[in-house]
Structure formats: C-alpha cells, structure tokens
Amino acid sequence: MAPTAIHNVLKATALSIGYFHKKSPLKVADQISFECQKGQLIGIVGANGIGKSTLLRTLSGMQKKLSGAIYLNENPLENYHTLDLATQISLVLTEAPNSKNLRVQEFVSLGRYPYTNWLGKLSPKDLEKVDWAIQLTETQNLISKKCFELSDGQFQRVAIARALAQDTPLILMDEPTTHLDLYHRAYLLKLLKKLTQETEKTILFSTHEIDLALQLSDLMMVLTKDGFYYDTPSRLIAEHRFQELFPEEIIVFDTQTGRFTIKD
C-alpha cells in the first residue's frame, strides 16, 4: 500500500492528552501514536468521556497537550502561528454558530477568513472555492437560508461546506453524525468518504456510529480504558479491539457482522 517516502499529514508520538487543573495535569488518555496520510478517512471511536473530543481539540491546537509530540506536515504543531494553522486544519464542531442571523452563504464564506484581506472581502478565487464547497456538499438550495432555519442534517452539511471552503489538507470533525437519523448518518459518512477520495483531504472524525464507521473508514482509532489502538477496521476487528470498548454485560460485538448486539 505504501509507496516511497510517505508524507504524513498528521503524526503523533507518545501523545498524552488531558487538562491542567490548578497547575497539575489531569490525564485523559496517553500513549497515543499514529500517522495519517493524504486522502484518508479516519474514524475515532470510544465510549463517552474517554477523550475523543479532547484528542481532537489537542490535535487542532486549541488545547495544550500534556506530553508527547504532534507533527503537522512533519513540523511540530506548536511551530504554526494561528493564521498558518488556519490554512492547514479546519474544524467541524458540534456547536451551532452564535449568531442566529447568519445566512448559509455568509457562514460558508467565513471559511475563507485566513485568505481574505483585512475587510474580509472575497476575491474571485474565494468565491470559486465557496461555490465548489457548496456544490460538493450539495447545499446549493440552502444558501439563502439562515442557519437557524436548517435541520440538523442540513446544518452538518453546511458546516462541512464551511470547512471545505477553508481549503485545508486536514479536516477534524467532532461527532458530525450526532442528532441525525440513520439515513442522514449514512449519507453524511458517505459524503466524507467521497470528499477524501475526490479532494485528497484527510478527514478525522469522532463518532458513535461504530458499525457505519467500520464500513467506510480507511483507518480507525479506538480509545479504550486500556489503551489506544490505530489500524484498519478489519484488523481491529480481528484483534477484538471493539469488545474492549464497552463493558460486556449488556452489549457484545459480533465479529462476523461488524455490529454490536444486545446481550440476552
């Protein structure tokens, strides 16, 4: 699979994540090591509170790591200035925008923030990127709506369009499938798959849809109490990593179907 000289878009070695509480570190997870390459779709799964969001926040530079190292394009993450970082990593967060008055067109256009002048005026190239992002996410019919008028599924697509307009090699998404019904979850994950294939962007997304993520992800990160695992879905299944996700008295993972079933 690997050709010569692999370019790592994102790499972490012996990363330990958590919070500083009154100067003393509160560890959430550690021994996190992985390498992500161009065009990969990578799902992050784990139980609630295991540190998925903390991991994404740390990787995006919003939160300080406790120890270890993060490399973005082979350069240490902390060497990037805020504005440089904004051209490398874009985010899709669970939070809705503060403003209720924002139109979809304006929301997506704000993704061009790192490239526009001090007034934020969009150049023809910026407009082109915005259009491209809107087309890829099939949100053309939403552009004149206000953000608060959208359904959850529509809003997720618009949020992804904004991240695409930011035009970064790496996109981090925090639970993009929350609040969506089964159809929209599948639609959204297929969209992510399509984006990684067509745009060669690397997408890391955290999710609770383990069965869907298994089917679509190129690689997966599994966060459990015992440790961090990073591999292809099939090998992770073979190594019984998903059994370790949850206590086994209620649900068990069926290695045949790749699904969780309720224990009788």
């Binding site: 904004a86 874009s90 967060l93 939070e95 503060n98 304006e106 923030y113 001090w118 934020g120």
Partner: peptide, 21 residues
Amino acid sequence: RSSKSLNALLLGENYAKSMGV
C-alpha cells in the same frame, strides 16, 4: 478595523480560533 474578526466571532470562540482569529 475589527469587523472581519467580529464576523468570525459570530461562529463562536472555537470556530473563530480555528480560522486564525
């Protein structure tokens, strides 16, 4: 002078930071 940053702040602190504010 801050109007561009103010626009980004409409998305919330985290989004704004991720866009280089």
